[in-house]
Design a protein around this nucleic acid. Structure first.
Lengths: 224, 224
DNA sequence: GAAACTCTTTATTCATGCATATTTCATCCA
DNA sequence: TGGATGAAATATGCATGAATAAAGAGTTTC
């Protein structure tokens, strides 16, 4: 009993560098730190009440994630997202989403299929809400079930990362309520295809699902 | 004149953390550091004649690349490559190679096509050599031309990373001389397909090209 | 008035110190 | 003898100091 409690309290531990990493990541994705803005170790360390070391390590991690750009001996800044860089991300993401849904068709368990239906229902419920962030999270949860079903850790990690790259603009996309019905019907179509193991149909819907976002997010970027 | 020289000497500059990173990466890929072996900051720092800081930063970078596994408050060790983790990498790599060759068909310039032919010729010349490392590098160079033609930086970075994951076992594969002729003919078939913009044929050959490696590398791993 | 040069300021890079968590090994008890 | 307990050793995590390179301001010169 005490052991379990101990285990639990241990699992709560996060290195300070990861706390800082999450904080900065959120700040970038929420737009509090804008593209081009410089990330200075000392100033951030003071703001966050830690030393320069964990800030430094967090910035390096953000660089590898593609959220910040580092120039040696000059420092780091929040990465600009150009239409080109977004196209690059989405091309890769499209290919990997296709792979994911193929593998999901092949490997999805009954249990996971249940979760997928639940996630779709939860998404439908939340669509009515005014809170866009909640909608985005429900959508993420839905796709996470598919990702998990692939049973491919490397693929899951990459997809999570690529999804993150567009998060800033995705919220803008979801603000257009007229897309919501389409999103929902695509989700249901994906479920149907996976349930019946209709691989090609699942792939086709998924690609359409992604392409819609490409259009919308590209529009959003042009408006900046 | 002095300006040019100055520029040149500047471009030679590499942060110490990157030097250490490259050193450790090479050591892992060459097998000097074996899977499971612990990477200790102090001992590595002493061996390399630097302080713990750049070693620490290099290890973090290696973790993000997937070459080492870190456990908080315990340290880092060289990542084990299991058959499962290799399958994961190769599934992703297959999808991305397919994307790459599709994009290459679409976007390859005349100039790049010339380079591709050159690379294939260079590969053929080197096949005769006894130096396996040279063969591997020529093969890398060939595929790099295709990668570059995609004009997608994100894709290029990912493919380079995935290729690296298998480098240790790839060398074993190339030691089997009976595969060499097949490799060469596949290269030529890929060139022909890209030249004639026969996308589906190019994809088919590329997938076969990858699958052959899956087989061979899996065999190699089982023998460990 | 503009360009160039220098001096100052600022931030990164790398080194090192200190505290703490983990591991190991020896000792003790059942 | 086997397992548990505890103390010493060791390594990581975080903080901070010292050195260097880059950016900026102000002055000088053409």
């Amino acid at each position: 009993m005490t052991d379990l409690k101990f285990e639990a309290s241990m699992s709560e531990y996060l290195p300070l560098r990861d706390v800082v990493f999450n904080t900065l990541r959120q700040a970038i994705l929420r737009g509090d730190l804008k593209p081009g803005e410089r990330l200075m170790e000392i100033s951030l360390a003071n703001k966050l009440g830690v030393s320069r070391t964990p800030v430094r390590e967090a910035i390096h991690k953000l660089e590898q994630e593609g959220l910040v750009l580092m120039i040696p001996r000059r420092g780091a800044e929040v990465a600009q997202i150009t239409e080109k860089s977004l196209r690059d991300v989405l091309e890769v993401r499209g290919a990997l989403e296709e792979l994911a849904v193929r593998l999901a068709c092949e490997r999805m368990t009954e249990r996971a299929l249940g979760e997928l239906n639940q996630a779709a229902e939860a998404f439908e419920k939340i669509l009515g809400d005014s809170d866009i962030t909640a909608v985005a999270e429900a959508d993420v949860a839905f796709h996470d079930v598919i990702y998990m079903a692939t049973d491919n850790q490397r693929l899951i990690a990459l997809l999570n990362n690529l999804r993150e790259q567009m998060y800033r603009y995705r919220v803008e996309y979801l603000k257009r309520r007229e897309c919501h019905a389409q999103l929902l019907s695509e989700h249901q179509e994906i479920i149907a295809a996976i349930t019946n193991k209709e691989v090609e149909r699942a792939v086709e819907v998924t690609c359409r699902h992604i392409d819609n976002q490409v259009e919308a997010v590209s529009d959003t970027i042009r408006q900046l």
